[in-house]
């Protein structure tokens, strides 16, 4: 029952946007900041507003029929108050500014959090709602207030994703009229690639002579069998006496996290997306272990580093790949 209705509404809306340029005028992407003003705020009565109108007509008919001027005055007062509430609804949107949109990072398939930075201007804003991506969120701001409103949008694939059209609307103060304005900020958000769920670890650069240096620590960690080349002073003579073979004191080696050199070229035989997914997983693991990493991509070479900023830089580079 509801599905055909929703379908009809959607088709109606599409038709209206095609036919009525005034409504679609601001569907063109526009640069921030966006200030709402009279030429882009529309207002219609809500369902309650229509019902209230019918009620007012009934009251008017009753008052006129009984020639009751006091009731007529009350009806006029209520009707005029309703009409005034329309202006209040308009004023609650008029002058509201969307100053910036600050996207957070998200991996494809996960919701992406946007921070909408809003400026109230000189008026108090109450019960303003934002529709974005099929969800609604309400907020209020005092006069001269600023607000960062977190909103989540769905993501599907990596890469640049234009922001969806968003609608600011309000039925303040009485819910009889709905004022709204469509915003289409000219801004895209970068969605990071989704890492693969499992796979081999990166090939360690074992052949690199730099990395064969042993790091001897101070503390005794264990005893192990003698291997040719172990220095004599490290043989545990007392312990060896009770064993068949020589034992050597092994000191802990607090190796600094070995750097991962992640390279696009070291992953042959995979298609681009699979490579990106694998590199993303490795970057994630490196970040989780606090291991420094470097990344070579076609057209981009990120020297080694660690920490969230480095991770974000690498992931963004991956996301931007064609």
């Amino acid at each position: 029952m509801t599905m055909p209705l929703a379908e009809a509404t959607r088709r109606m809306q599409n038709w209206a946007e095609r036919r009525l340029p005034a409504l679609t005028r601001y569907r063109r992407p526009e640069s921030l900041p966006i200030e709402l003003h009279r030429r882009r705020i529309y207002i219609v009565p809500t369902g309650l507003g229509m019902a209230f109108g019918v009620l007012l007509i009934v009251m008017l008919a009753g008052a006129l029929n009984y020639a009751n001027n006091a009731a007529l005055l009350l009806t006029c007062l209520l009707g005029a108050a309703c009409a005034t509430s329309m202006l209040v609804a308009f004023r609650s949107l008029d002058g509201l500014r969307l100053t910036a949109i600050q996207p957070n990072h998200a991996i494809a398939g996960q919701p992406l959090i946007l921070q909408l930075h809003l400026d109230a201007g000189t008026r108090v804003r109450q019960a303003i709602r934002v529709d974005i991506d099929g969800q609604t969120q309400a907020f209020a701001m005092p006069a001269h207030g600023q607000l960062a409103l977190p909103l989540a949008i769905a993501t599907t694939r990596r890469g640049w994703q234009p922001l969806p059209r968003l609608r600011l609307w309000s039925s303040w103060p009485l819910g009889l009229f709905q004022a709204w304005s469509w915003l289409y900020p000219e801004q895209s958000v970068l969605v990071w690639p989704r890492p693969e769920t499992g796979g081999p670890p990166p090939r360690l650069p074992a052949d690199d002579p730099m990395h064969q240096r042993l790091h001897h620590g101070e503390d005794l960690a264990a005893l192990r069998d003698y291997r040719a080349g172990d220095p004599q002073r490290r043989i545990a003579w007392k312990a060896s006496a009770r064993h068949d073979s020589l034992l050597v004191k092994d000191f802990e080696q607090p190796l600094p996290r070995q750097e991962w050199r992640l390279d696009w070229r070291h992953l042959p035989g995979l298609d681009n997306e699979a490579r990106i997914a694998r590199l993303a997983r490795w970057l994630g693991e490196a970040e989780a272990q606090g291991r420094p990493s470097s990344l070579w991509l076609p057209g981009d070479d990120i020297s080694h580093g660690a920490g969230p900023a480095h991770y974000a830089r690498c992931m963004s580079a991956l996301a931007r790949l064609p």
């Binding site: 006029c76 108050a81 103060p173």
Partner: peptide
């Protein structure tokens, strides 16, 4: 809201 509505309501009252 009601106070702001008074002028319009008086007009309507006189002219309905």
């Amino acid at each position: 809201l009601l106070a702001a509505a008074i002028p319009l309501s008086l007009l309507a009252f006189v002219l309905v």
